[in-house]
Design a protein around this nucleic acid. Structure first.
Lengths: 203, 203
DNA sequence: TAAATTACCATACAAATGTATGGTAATTAT
DNA sequence: ATAATTACCATACATTTGTATGGTAATTTA
C-alpha cells in the first residue's frame, strides 16, 4: 500500500514525470523556479519526503538524478515493462525491466512503452510470442485496432471491437474465445494502442 | 540529407541515446569518463561537431541538456534501400526508393540499412510482405540465419544453410523450393544478416 | 497540551558542470 | 604546400548543483 502524498508532493511528482518525459529530469533549482520557491532547500525537503515514501529514488551528488518509481508502471518510460498475454491474461511484472537482448536497436520513445508478448493467440495478426509491441497510451483506441488492456489486474493484447452494448476483445486465433464485456465493466481499462512491433533475430 | 559523422562521433551519439534511455543524458564528465578522456574539453568539441551537423541540440549552461534530435520526433525517416523478395527475386533500386517512418523505438545501428519485404515466402519465419527488415552488413552470416543476398542482380531474403559442397537458400514456405548454389558461384553475394524486424500497425 | 509534521525561508560550501583559451600531433582537403 | 579538420591534451573560471544547518509559522497528531 502506497503512502499518502500531500497535495504539493503530488504536484512535484507530476512535474518530475512531466519533465522526464519531455527529456531530462529537473534540477532542484528548476523545480524551485517552477513552484516559485526562493531556494532549493525547500525542494530538497519535498524530494526527501517523496523518496522516504518510496515514490522516487535519488542518486546522491549527481545532478538531475531523480528516478520516478511510480506504482503506475504503464506510463513510466521503461525499456520493457513486462510481459503481456496474447492468450490467457498474465500478470505484469512491475520491476522486471527487460533491458534484455534488444541489442542496439530498441529504445523508448517519449510517450510510448514496450511490452513483450507471451502466447500465440494473435498469430493470425502475425504477432508471436517473444515479439516486442510498441504501445502508445496517448492515442484513442478505435474499433478494430490491436490494443493493450488491463483486465482484473492482468494485461492482455487483443483486437478491440466496440459494439452497441459493450466491448469485445478478440484473439486472432480460433483456439481462443473472445472476451465480451458489458458496459460499465469494472477493473477494465484500455492502456494503449499497439502502433508497432519489433522483433530481434538474434539467436 | 544528414551530414556524415566520424566513427567517434557515432559512438558518442550512441552513448547519448543509450544513457537517455537508461534515465538521464550524461554530463560532459560522464562522457569523458566513458571514453577515457582526461578532460571535458575534448567532449565539448565532439558535442559541438554533433550539434553543428544537426544531430543534437544543447541548451547552453544547463547540465545534461543534450537533446538527440532524431530521437525527439516519434518517427525518424529512414531510407529504405529497396524491396527485397522473400519469394522470387526482385531488383534492388540503386537509390533509396522509399522512406519509412521508424518509431524512435527502433533505432538503426549506424552500419545497418532497411529493406522492405515483398512476398510471403518467409511466412513460416513470421516475416510477411510489407515488413521492414533491418540488415547488418558487417557481421558474419552463419548457417541457419536469415540473410539478404544478391543473386544475379536481384536481392532475396532467405534462410542460409552452409553445406559441404555449397550454399543453400531456403524459403520458409513449402510453396517455394530451396535455391542451391555450388561453390564459387558467380553473381552471388551475401549482403548482410537480418538482425531485426519492424512492422507498423498504422493504417 | 505537547510533539510531530508540513511548508516555507536564509545562508553557506564543496564539488560538479559547462565553457573558454591555447597547445600538439596526425590526417585530409585545397 | 598550405590550410582545414580531427582528435586529443592542460589549465582556468564563473555558475550551477546538491547538500547542510538553522530558523519561522501553521497545521496535524498523540
Amino acid at each position: 500500500m502506497p503512502l499518502e502524498l500531500t497535495e504539493i508532493q503530488k504536484k512535484i511528482l507530476d512535474f518530475l514525470i512531466e519533465q522526464k518525459v519531455k527529456g531530462i529530469p529537473p534540477t532542484l533549482a528548476e523545480i524551485a523556479s517552477k513552484f516559485g520557491y526562493k531556494n532549493r532547500a525547500t525542494v530538497q525537503q519535498h524530494l526527501g519526503a517523496l523518496e522516504k515514501k518510496g515514490y522516487i529514488k535519488r542518486s546522491p551528488k549527481l545532478s538531475r538524478a531523480i528516478e520516478v518509481l511510480s506504482e503506475d508502471k504503464f506510463f513510466i518510460p521503461r525499456p520493457v515493462l513486462g510481459e503481456v498475454a496474447a492468450g490467457s491474461p498474465l500478470t505484469i511484472y512491475p520491476d522486471s525491466v527487460d533491458t534484455v537482448e534488444l541489442p542496439t536497436i530498441v529504445r523508448m520513445p517519449h510517450d510510448s512503452f514496450l511490452l513483450k508478448v507471451k502466447g500465440n493467440s494473435l498469430k493470425d495478426a502475425y504477432i508471436f510470442s517473444g515479439d516486442i509491441v510498441i504501445v502508445n497510451p496517448n492515442i484513442p483506441a478505435l474499433s478494430g485496432q490491436i490494443v493493450v488492456a488491463i483486465l482484473d489486474d492482468a494485461a492482455v493484447v487483443k483486437r478491440l471491437f466496440v459494439k452497441e452494448n459493450g466491448i469485445e476483445l478478440h484473439s486472432e486465433n480460433p483456439e481462443y474465445a473472445p472476451i465480451i464485456l458489458e458496459k460499465d465493466r469494472n477493473n477494465f481499462k484500455i492502456v494503449g494502442v499497439v502502433v508497432g512491433l519489433y522483433r530481434t533475430m538474434r539467436n
